[in-house]
Amino acid sequence: MLFLEELQWVWWIIIFLMAYYYYNWAQEHLAFSPVLTLVVAAILIYYLVIVYPWAGLLGWFVSIIMFSGLLFMGAVFAPFLFRARPK
């Protein structure tokens, strides 16, 4: 059986990490204006963490997959995975 109490704690940790991730994103992209950083971070955290956390989680995973360079690894391992078979 699932231990729901522990799952709750995990969920709160994920929520906190998501909020930090979106705040950090705003800080990185709007570093020239602290006020704008706070405004954009507030909008992002309100909509993507508080109101629609599932959309925020999806966006988080998608952005990690797209921008972390994980997809370059596909090209590294593809020759071993999809090798032309000798006849």
Binding site: A26, H29, L30, Y47, L48, Y52, A55
Partner: peptide, 22 residues
């Protein structure tokens, strides 16, 4: 939901553009 997320997407795009403009 669609309208809210569409607004968030606009905010993201605008942030990227602001960075480039700066």
């Amino acid at each position: 939901v669609t309208a809210d997320l569409w607004f968030v997407v606009r905010i993201l795009v605008f942030s990227y553009l602001l960075f480039q403009l700066y």
